[in-house]
Design a protein around this nucleic acid. Sequence first.
DNA 1: CAGATCTCAGCTATACTGAAATGC
DNA 2: CGCATTTCAGTATAGCTGAGATCT
Lengths: 148, 148
Amino acid sequence: MPTGEDARPARLMAKPSWLISEVSRVAYPLLSDRLATAGSRGYHYRLLAALAEFGPASQASLGRHAAMDRSDVAAAVSDLVGRGLAARAPDPADRRRNVISITPAGTAHLRRLDELVAGVQDELLTPLSAAERQQLTSLLSRIVQHHG
Amino acid sequence: MPTGEDARPARLMAKPSWLISEVSRVAYPLLSDRLATAGSRGYHYRLLAALAEFGPASQASLGRHAAMDRSDVAAAVSDLVGRGLAARAPDPADRRRNVISITPAGTAHLRRLDELVAGVQDELLTPLSAAERQQLTSLLSRIVQHHG
DNA sequence: CAGATCTCAGCTATACTGAAATGC
DNA sequence: CGCATTTCAGTATAGCTGAGATCT
């Protein structure tokens, strides 16, 4: 094995879509492992965040806020309810719906997850200055908004 | 449903790791669908790129260059060989290894995939100027290099 | 012996699809 | 009727793990 095998094809290194997927691949286990220390996954954090910021909502509405599929919302909400972090109740005004709400324990849990997630940002963006992190966030936000 | 349900929790929108995964989620079907028009997937492009730029290599070496798992390399190489885009031959110097090489048809196919992938970059980065695209690429590259 | 390579079976999480039952 | 909601079963992919056989 003569030369460095960690080298990547130049074709890939020059493609933003490749870099994005590589950073995403780096970020995923960082986030996933941290959340796991609190017995949670990304879906749980996203749902709790949506519940905390937008208030009680149906599962369908929740899925739109948290950018999750209806199918995955159902399963993840059941997890949260099972752990006492959220409550599921029938909607008296529309009996097709469940109204999901965050519990006090859920709010406390979200705060804990917030700290874990903040730590991941620092770890992921270590090589960037504060100004560069802001720049990156801004550029990515515009891409996300455009494809919204 | 009073207010916009496309709104995302502020907690998420402020997290680079979330934005990265969102952009990655947008980019994936763009890339995947385009490559599918040529009967290929991301793994195929990455392998062909590594073969074209680093020359014939063992599957293990190929996996390191293309950032792929040994297991996935085996399956994807079999795909390429089956389509005549790569060749698999035993290494006379080390009989544990297969030497994988790109064929002329593989080189031609790679050129075609290159055009498709280039189109995806434009589509993904539509809202950004040329300078901003360069900036984004640079920031992402530094993150990737740091976590290499 | 340790260590590398290849193959295969299987696993997890994300993301998604289809269908059915229920209700507006 | 059309449409929305929930639930369940199932699919696909990327990425990864473990085990075993082979070879250096």
